[in-house]
Design a protein around this nucleic acid. Sequence first.
DNA 1: CGCCGACTTGACATTAATCAAATGTAGTGG
DNA 2: CCACTACATTTGATTAATGTCAAGTCGGCG
Lengths: 219, 219
Amino acid sequence: MGLGESDISRLDEIIGRRRKIPKDGLLYRIDDTFTNLYAIRLGHFKTFQLTPNGEQQITGFQMAGELLGMDAISTDRHHCDAVALEDSEVCEIPFNRLEELFGTIPTLLHHFHRMMSQEITREQNVMLLLGNMRAEQRFAAFLVNLSARYAARGYSSTNFQLRMSREEIGNYLGLTIESISRLLSRFKKQNLLRVSNREIEVLEPVNLKAIAAGTETCS
Amino acid sequence: MGLGESDISRLDEIIGRRRKIPKDGLLYRIDDTFTNLYAIRLGHFKTFQLTPNGEQQITGFQMAGELLGMDAISTDRHHCDAVALEDSEVCEIPFNRLEELFGTIPTLLHHFHRMMSQEITREQNVMLLLGNMRAEQRFAAFLVNLSARYAARGYSSTNFQLRMSREEIGNYLGLTIESISRLLSRFKKQNLLRVSNREIEVLEPVNLKAIAAGTETCS
DNA sequence: CGCCGACTTGACATTAATCAAATGTAGTGG
DNA sequence: CCACTACATTTGATTAATGTCAAGTCGGCG
């Protein structure tokens, strides 16, 4: 990210202990006081809010390399729960020490702003998905998004494992578990995907993207 | 916001010209290069993204006192269009000069982080609304949110004018204009609201909040 | 082997969208 | 001031998409 050696080592200094979070373990919960951001080293997480009547709404799935906790800066309290989808590992980044560094490493600050801004645009894309797309398009967009993120991390864009349950996917996409299941079956029948439990193979990435874009339908 | 006099005057120095935007005027459009944040001095705006097939999805309504453009920091290009809902006025804030100030005014930096973080949580709440709520609840939540924001700015929480059309409300809430119209009629019939064109009077704020919370229904 | 939880599939119900018309409102020019 | 137009909103009838309910089936694990 364009930092010099000495900057890196100063950043390293403030990065706190690594912390292992077992599958289903809580990284933080809503209303916890905010002291750390978390960089995911390994594994996957989900973040969710609680609806007024106690159900959960998943607001994102995060993977290794992504940053957790930025929503908490505004009030010094976390605004959602973060739970590990599998055995995972994070680095704690004490936010007040990070802010001190910002004064002396402008590049670091700039990069941090980009990450927050990126989170804003990510969420805007989800709003678009939830507000505008039909079930089939939502689910295709979800798969395309996962695929692109794995590709960006050097993994296969066509073969990957879903770390979340059908229910969690449905929750995230504003659909029921039954709808997700039917969509998977439909995509499978049309030979867009090969599916085995949580193992996904994308057979027709182009068509899948077309469905996500709304250009095409998978009757 | 806890800044000293001299800090304020330094901030004032970098704040660029005021800019008037007429109703329906464009403040910025998607893919414009990013140079300024905009503080709304007067009026209201909407921001929206374009769906892959060219329709718009409104991602937010902003009012005087709020900040526009933070989504553009990540890529130096705007990720949405911003359009004035009425004759409005903004202050341009050159972002690179703002970043220079951050180095010398930590309080300002901290405040800026809070604003970005607040935008993240705002969007998470919209995701909850779109992903979890039924039409009636969405619309009640929308009204309660507007009401609270006007109250926070010293205006009446029960009497205000909608600056956006029914269609824009529907677009934002993932509903059709017909649904919004029917919901307004229903709320009117139940004496929750008095409505005259875009003029709203909230007659039963408590019940409206209960509907937004999902505790109650308005059959 | 048998249980349990996750997932799939089918039948039916409900919500909100779509289509179609009627009504209202603001603005314009006579 | 009024007629007229364009556009926004309301209302009604019908349809389509997705949710709900109810059985199943599959796969992993003790």
